[in-house]
Write a protein that binds this DNA or RNA. Structure first.
Lengths: 346, 346
DNA sequence: CTGAAAGCGCTTACAG
DNA sequence: CTGAAAGCGCTTACAG
């Protein structure tokens, strides 16, 4: 009588038997090769999962190696990214997790293919990957999903596939609150200078802005909506220059990020316009840079460090095989009133 | 004719042949079993050594495990650290090196002992460690040296042992150049607001400042030297407050870092003093933050990204066993004149 | 796309 | 203490 030897460590052969395929086929799936029919792959993955199969290397890694999480960033030059990374690093320090950081620059796929990258992560026994505001394609994420490597994205530029866990902030509510703050001060001519146009978070902020205007019956003036920039300082400079060309300047500006707002601040100064006496200015992000400018920037704060922490926590849960409540975590934004907003000049 | 197949990777079988024993015997030696005669064991060990045998697991690690370098940072909250890290990450992206970042916070040795940390690095096959402006003790560095793990320190707070490679900038020359710039504008009452007092780089900047004054016969006024702070914004705020208490304000201020200078800038603004009309201000570091303030900050630029790159390059050389020209690399600083310095008011 | 067959590198069990 | 033999787990090459 063949008893179920459930206490033995699972091998390729046992998994193969369970999935009703041969050992070589299981081997291919484990190694991420693509010459396996999707339906077969699914069956094998299920069997691997159920048996809790680990390759000899993984067994070894799991036993003695530290938990390593990879963090992928496009650039490390914005206060936003730095604060998110800080949240990740601080949480990691207390959780005995090591963080491998890589910057991709312009080309997210430079050097190594997504498949190669995913396979390497598997081989090295990495616990998972956090992608910060990068444009990771569906195909790239697919390579990870196929190998069951946990991935969490923070504020992705393109909306991630439904089954990828993502962390963000309440961008729509934040955009609405920022605009309501300006409206409450008495402003009726409010411009929006946005970041990357197609980015989810930018869209949400812009629509929050429009929702606030509409709710109060303030007409939306299309020439006050400046888009097509990035979330950086130079977009604020360019955006303000564009506003200067209009017949009438707005009395207040909502910038899609603190960096953009700082660009506006500097460019306004160059034209002899005072903030907030001549124009009110509110940013988004609540970074320390905005806090330290003169005047200090009123801003919609995102809990950036908290977002980094939440991403790592969620990733570690996935890595432990826990089932998550939700594939989307949105943390609350909050308007921080400092020195750059005031009632409009009489 | 049995040719020497030196290009094939050594296996248990080849080593066994070389040692004149069977494969199982070599297996026992490799696995540290004790049922092997001492004389046989010695012969096998010699053969293993000579063949450069690695177990499949070791081979796998060595072959495809990317080179991993650990970077240790105290805090990731200054523009200085961020730019150095950026230099490291960018160079790493092009050099197929992975970077493990850890922040130590207040306690550089929190959680794990230096010995434990070093041993773990060895076990995990890490190529080496870069320490950024942290206070690593001699004892800590010793743990690494003993295991022959390469270490490079960037601008250490305490001078590192002579045999540890360090990367920095020409701080003394930079301090002198900053002060000469102010002297050339006509200033004779120049204050220095320093960072961490005992830090090597702070000492060098201060002495550069004094050297420039002495060279031009301008008396050094001790109450114009503010020390005991850190390299952060609040030290600039506190330092400027201290200057305000003096009978006579200086006409120019040399700040030990851009962050300190930004604190001065904001505090001066709060007291209705204009930069550079009322007081000239020069910072140190040349960070992008200083570039973006209003007015833009005149500063002594350190090539921060370049320093990060140089540190990583030097580390990789050490890891490859190359002999370095020097244990100390100092990159040149340069005064960047922007909007915060001007001749003194008449 | 699949798997029977061959093979690789290592380990185990045990006869001597 | 040693090693021939058997075996394990995985991968490769390739026929269908």
């Amino acid at each position: 009588m063949a008893t179920n030897t459930r206490h033995d460590k699972p091998t390729l052969a046992t998994v193969a038997r369970q999935a009703g395929v041969s050992a070589p086929t299981v081997s291919k799936v484990v190694n991420g090769r693509d010459d396996v029919a999707p339906e077969t792959r699914a069956r094998v993955l299920a069997a691997l999962e159920q048996a809790g199969y680990q390759s000899p290397l993984q067994r070894r890694s799991a036993a003695e190696a530290a938990t390593v999480v990879e963090v992928v960033i496009d650039f490390l030059d914005s206060a936003y990214t730095v604060e998110v990374l800080n949240g990740i690093l601080r949480f990691a320090a207390g959780a005995d997790v090591e963080i491998l950081v890589s910057v991709t620059g312009q080309a997210p796929s430079s050097g190594i293919s997504p498949e190669g990258r995913a396979q390497r992560m598997l081989d090295e026994g990495r616990a998972g990957m956090i992608v910060v505001t990068s444009a990771f394609s569906e195909a790239q994420l697919h390579a990870f999903r196929r190998r069951q490597i946990p991935v969490v994205v923070i504020d992705p530029l393109n909306p991630p596939p439904a089954d990828v866990v993502s962390v963000g902030a309440t961008n729509w509510a934040g955009g609405k609150a920022a605009t309501e703050h300006l409206l409450a001060l008495g402003h009726r001519h409010i411009a929006y200078i946005g970041g990357i146009e197609r980015a989810e978070c930018n869209q949400a902020r812009l629509h929050g802005y429009m929702a606030a205007l509409m709710a109060q019956g303030v007409p939306i003036e299309p020439h006050y909506i400046i888009s097509g920039g990035r979330f950086r300082r130079d977009s604020g400079v360019a955006g303000f220059k564009a506003l200067l060309k209009l017949e009438q300047l707005p009395t207040a500006i909502f910038a899609g990020s603190d960096s953009i707002a700082l660009g506006v601040l500097s460019e306004a100064g160059r034209h002899g316009l005072r903030i907030p006496e001549d124009i009110s200015l509110i940013g988004f992000d609540g970074t320390s840079q905005g806090q330290e400018s003169v005047p200090a920037l009123t801003s919609v704060a995102q809990p950036l460090e908290e977002m980094g922490r939440a991403a790592l926590r969620s990733l570690l849960r996935q890595a432990r095989g826990e089932v998550l409540d939700s594939h989307r975590v949105e943390l609350a934004t909050q308007v921080i009133v400092r020195g750059s907003t005031a009632p409009p000049a009489a």
